[in-house]
Design a protein around this nucleic acid. Sequence first.
DNA 1: GATGAATGAGAATTCATTCAT
DNA 2: AATGAATGAATTCTCATTCAT
Lengths: 185, 185, 185, 185
Amino acid sequence: MSRDTTRPRRADARRNVDALLDAARAVFDTSGVDAPAKEITDLAGVGVGTLYRHFPQRADLVKAVVESGIDAVADAAGPLREAHEPPEALDLWIHRFAELLATKRGLASALHSGDPAFAGLPGYFTGRLRPILSELLIAAGVREDIDAEDVLHAITQLSQPVPGRGPEHGRRMVGVFIDGLRASP
Amino acid sequence: MSRDTTRPRRADARRNVDALLDAARAVFDTSGVDAPAKEITDLAGVGVGTLYRHFPQRADLVKAVVESGIDAVADAAGPLREAHEPPEALDLWIHRFAELLATKRGLASALHSGDPAFAGLPGYFTGRLRPILSELLIAAGVREDIDAEDVLHAITQLSQPVPGRGPEHGRRMVGVFIDGLRASP
Amino acid sequence: MSRDTTRPRRADARRNVDALLDAARAVFDTSGVDAPAKEITDLAGVGVGTLYRHFPQRADLVKAVVESGIDAVADAAGPLREAHEPPEALDLWIHRFAELLATKRGLASALHSGDPAFAGLPGYFTGRLRPILSELLIAAGVREDIDAEDVLHAITQLSQPVPGRGPEHGRRMVGVFIDGLRASP
Amino acid sequence: MSRDTTRPRRADARRNVDALLDAARAVFDTSGVDAPAKEITDLAGVGVGTLYRHFPQRADLVKAVVESGIDAVADAAGPLREAHEPPEALDLWIHRFAELLATKRGLASALHSGDPAFAGLPGYFTGRLRPILSELLIAAGVREDIDAEDVLHAITQLSQPVPGRGPEHGRRMVGVFIDGLRASP
DNA sequence: GATGAATGAGAATTCATTCAT
DNA sequence: AATGAATGAATTCTCATTCAT
């Protein structure tokens, strides 16, 4: 069900790729997606050349870091639909999704930056999650004037942490938004 | 009631400051608040030195650009309350506010960046708008578990334009959120 | 005997020139002769334009500041020769001269910089002091293989304060040098 | 006995570092230690980035340039003492030292600038040379009221070239000073 | 395949000097 | 005459990306 990015076959190469991904995850959380490449390679204990070999474009790295998260969210939909009534399933899934965004500082801005450096990212994001959310929305019987992709973006934005307010903030705002989805147009 | 930033007295200086503010507004919209200073001065038809004379810190420029927008939104509240019923006034004001944010790309990120360069901006923003929104919310009789500052931030985020979706998008998402505010907790 | 720089006739202009000279003296002592012009005009409470009106070249200002000191040293020779035996007069005058240099931080480097910005300064300096020192040296009967201008420069250098050593340092080094002048070639 | 700064291991890197040091030496002589970095890198035929990689702080470069000179002077003492009588050894060593200073325009000012960018330089200078000079002074049996560090500074200053006078000038002034050291207090 | 050195295009900032008011 | 605004060249430093080892 999940991604199957081609990985290097040599053991040391694979090790480096993993180290880079781990480092990138950490650095993205700390300093955002615009962090200097050096910061990542230093943390990974690897030369910059190695980064560029495995991820020629900056977007490739971001994509790789992000995709696993997106996949996990996508995969969560099935179980939720089986275990809960549609309205509740929708609710839970959206919060699950929001949680991903909240912890990946910078993902949202990468998604919306329009920066060609991140080309491909929004496509993967939308392609993977829109169909799933679309079905959840229909099943839950909410208003039909709002399309799934719009909701995806809205939640992406609402779940961004605001400095000075706790993590609760995003959660509650998303809740209000879901209430709005249940209202009649 | 509106901004009254101390302006230079000499006519040419005032002209330059205005040109810089206009240019900054335009550039911020286009390239975000991190745009190179040169881009702004070129557009303003002014030397870089002039920018630094009037706005020694990057934040000073952003602040000046932003504050006029904030002030205009704040000032809009009075007339709206006089001309409309409370629920409608709330609705109109929030959209008015969202419109500001939508056209000022980067304002939202400056507000949330946590960057010390923009210290003071969030304070001005909140200080000016929270009291106004707070009254509007109470008058409109919406749910009371959501505080005005949270709404401010939520709208700020929702109104950000998403590349690939028209300006309609933000407007509609804000509409959904307002509907959510009207729902019972 | 002393300088007679043409001074402006209008009272306010004269006041400004004096303020600038005082400020320059202070700033040169503090930050050296390379200090930004603005620093001087701010201290003088005067616009930069005023500085450039009265001292079109940077050297003009330095010269003006310095010349009064040089003149005073030059003028000191006469009385010393009348009151003391030649060897002692030489000794006292050199120390008097060294004292000037020691308190005018940056004068020495301006003198030796070769920087065209200070054109004219060395000329005034040498023209005024060499003849005087020359006579003193001859009268004192010291070795004749060392010319007065060389001594001027040597004392200039030796009297420069060294960070971390007290003002005594310069005085003692100058003393050693004078002893050397008394030795046979 | 001499410097053993950790050098890069890669051949090209080492070549660049050497080129930079040579260029810096030349440029410092010509334009002083405040010369623009670009001037140095151009002369070295190297990108600016390379300079900053090897010498992140301006002081690092100055230090490297200076230390080799200091070390060479320090190392010269031994042979001189073996080959000459103490008074002559002192004489020769001081001139050797003066020669270093004379050709390294700007070294003296860096040493005395008090600029925090050059912190550490004076310490190295003094730490390395004072003990050596101290022994030479004692061995030569000169007056004992002048301490080695003072002599170090005095020679540093005296050996500075004066624009308009040949290199002879410094040499002769140093000679006079040494004669002064031989006089009785 | 890995490394990290080299490159150089930007970006920010300062300040001497000119000139409109 | 005084003022201080404007200019822009000059300088420092950073970092993405390439490429020799």
